[in-house]
Design a protein around this nucleic acid. Structure first.
Lengths: 221, 221
DNA sequence: ACCTGAACACCGTTCAAGT
DNA sequence: ACCTGAACACCGTTCAAGT
């Protein structure tokens, strides 16, 4: 609303584009079509502009992704965490997961850049802090955080690609074919589970595994 | 060496290309330049051929990746596993990791397709089987396998991108900048660790975390 | 059967120019 | 300051044609 241009330009029409409008358009594109839908050219088209106009407001595509990351991190709620350090560790880990599950494109960015949005670092702080309070050394607490982050990132990345794949639903799934032709002698467990495999792997078991991981990590003090 | 063409062609010169030569060239490309180096056009250029010639031996790029996956899986050794089911579970999990760590491009393929090469399924069988022997239900064993797989995939994916990033080493790492400007009041743990963060996160802690995860999963019987 | 060339519909980004 | 157009160096893939 306070859309007065910041420059004291004595000439010319007001800018048509801004970081803000670009970010909003990019969010729409991501929500509608996922990471694959977001390209500089496509974004420009959506804004009735040219690819190069964007580069006036954003350094490059990576910079745009960073801005999107910060924007999302700003919107996440910040609930009170449990007192008990083990519970706090699990709750924070769950939060890390939930915050990202809502927009999984972010995980691809996070994984591909190893960067954390500053506005989400309080979750990392909470995990490391509760781990220390549980008796881990500072180094051990960082290791524990990393294990949780790897597990979370893997879960989200694989879930995203599974959903993308089943959405496209092109061929009869290489995996199902593989399972169908499994020799019961060589693979007794897998072939006896072959029929249930799809539904078994689709279940949401994140919470239980997170608890198991945390308990396992804390058992080593 | 047994390079006789399979067709009984009564005409024409022998085929210049074959799945075999294509796969070898693709492996070289991947080894030399990673996933980003592998494109159909680039591969054709490397083979002194045209992009379209490849499509005669391979359905599309995904098919080529699948062939590469199978080829790699065939080469992995198959060591004897420990008798003790917990040890076997950990050893198999470690194996899953090690087999993939050697060619991390594979993880990107695996994650993006949720497919397992048939020749590597014995590792999955070993994990699920040992989990059942440890007292988990078949469903619980699958859940345990998935937790291990998510953790492993996350670790590898993030490691690959970290290595790629530090190799390119363009800017002074957004993450380091973020850590440097952390307020000690709001982030006491993280800011006290800020200086050590790079080396702490570079350490290989896979084995310990895997053991923690397995023990945590087995503790829930 | 095996390969080529031209084409289609895309990418991210640079550079020189317009207002 | 802000935007445009043309260009560069790429993608995966289809289609029609050559031998």
């Amino acid at each position: 609303m306070h859309s007065g241009p910041k420059h004291t330009g004595r000439t010319g029409r007001p800018p048509r584009l801004s970081q803000e409008t670009i970010i909003f358009a990019a969010q729409d594109l991501l929500a509608a079509e996922g990471t694959r839908g977001l390209s500089m050219r496509r974004l420009a088209r959506e804004l009735d502009s040219t690819p190069m106009a964007l580069y006036h407001h954003v350094r490059d595509k990576d910079d745009l992704l960073l801005l999107l990351l910060e924007e999302h991190a700003r919107t996440i709620p910040r609930p009170a965490l449990p007192e008990d350090p083990r519970d706090r560790m699990i709750t924070a880990g769950q939060l890390l997961h939930d915050v990202l599950a809502g927009c999984p494109w972010i995980v691809e960015v996070l994984a591909s850049d190893d960067l954390m949005a500053k506005s989400a670092l309080w979750i990392v702080e909470a995990i490391v802090d509760s781990a220390v309070e549980c008796g881990l050394s500072p180094e051990g607490a960082v290791d524990a955080y990393r294990a949780i982050w790897y597990y979370t990132a893997g879960e989200l990345l694989i879930r995203v690609s599974r959903e993308r794949r089943t959405a496209e639903a092109s061929r009869p799934s290489h995996r199902d074919q593989t399972f169908a032709t499994l020799s019961p002698d060589a693979y007794p467990r897998l072939s006896s589970l072959a029929g249930q495999w799809p539904e078994l792997t689709r279940r949401d078991t994140h919470r239980q595994s997170l608890e198991a991981l945390v308990d396992g990590l804390l058992a080593r003090v």
